[in-house]
Design a protein around this nucleic acid. Structure first.
Lengths: 162, 162
DNA sequence: ACCTGTTGTAACCGTTATTGTTATAACTCA
DNA sequence: TGAGTTATAACAATAACGGTTACAACAGGT
């Protein structure tokens, strides 16, 4: 069969593809640590130094400052060099888990699923798979994100025991 | 404040924690490649050798065999050593994207979100954050997976152009 | 004006997952 | 038996992650 040959006898030259990298990141603990930090700040802004938050999260202060920096860049918190403590820039009712998720770059480029590229376009499947699958996966991802958007930091705090 | 001291003056000994590792994996291209392979097998089982599929996906045949091996272990496909070709072990209408997602271990231990551990239990936030957040994130994950479960390989193929 | 405590970063390390690759054993069937 | 195939081990290159040290810059109190 022609297609069989076309697919099996791959040209050896394909190794030229410089690998664009663009690696999708996993959903790291940055996300949960960020939520933790925001919960602390919402509760007790005055004491929220990097060291203090690190003491509650039980990690290194630099890890915390890195994450706080991302939250600051996203407009969620206020921090000033030299002066201790941090404060929310929005009401805790208005900061959702999705805001935090996005702020800490939980998923690269807003794509949770990574899809292989360079499929063989001489093959009916290779020709179509990327677009069709992308549509499906984007819908799945959207549902997840909608759920994240439904919970605010304030709602989270309200669920704490006592 | 007592809590402040408790959190700020961390005992230096905490470094003993041997770091259990347990790294959560990202959603790799294994998933999309597996869907691609299953689509090929559903369409054209006879010709589906590792090299053939690799030609359509445009990657190394060993990568394909590794993935096919996982699909086989999950009971989705039939492959036999020595003999070329592969076949579905279930109707393409009954194989969902979620089945594939699970088969290739897209998320470690079925937990898409990784949550930091060892929060300071002397802190009200540290005490509660893990359980409360876990509940939320599991619901978000569940919605995503339910969406994956709604699409079968057959439905995917039906969406291909011409 | 200094000192202390803090934020903000850069730089580096060890670990891990991923993807591609080579090599080799074992198997099937004509 | 030989060709084609599956199965798998081993290795390398890359990247993300989390932790750590070091240091510059800054603010506020004394």
């Amino acid at each position: 069969m022609r297609l069989a040959k076309c697919l099996t006898e791959r040209p050896v030259v394909t190794t030229m593809v410089t690998t664009v990298v663009r690696q999708l990141k996993q959903i790291s603990t940055r996300f949960s640590i960020a939520v933790h930090a925001l919960s602390l700040i919402a509760t007790n802004p005055a004491e929220c130094t990097g060291d203090y938050i690190a003491g509650s999260v039980n990690t290194n202060p630099v890890v915390i400052r890195r994450i706080i920096g991302m939250l600051k860049k996203a407009g969620l918190v206020d921090v000033r060099p030299g002066v201790g403590g941090a404060s929310l820039r929005q009401d805790p009712e208005r900061i959702t888990l999705l805001d935090v998720y996005r702020a800490v770059n939980a998923a690269e480029d807003d794509h949770l699923f990574r899809i292989h590229e360079n499929s063989n376009i001489d093959c009916p499947v290779g020709q179509n798979i990327e677009n069709v699958l992308r549509t499906e996966l984007e819908q799945a991802q959207a549902l997840m994100e909608q759920r994240l958007a439904q919970t605010s930091i304030a709602q989270l705090l309200a669920k704490f025991a006592r």
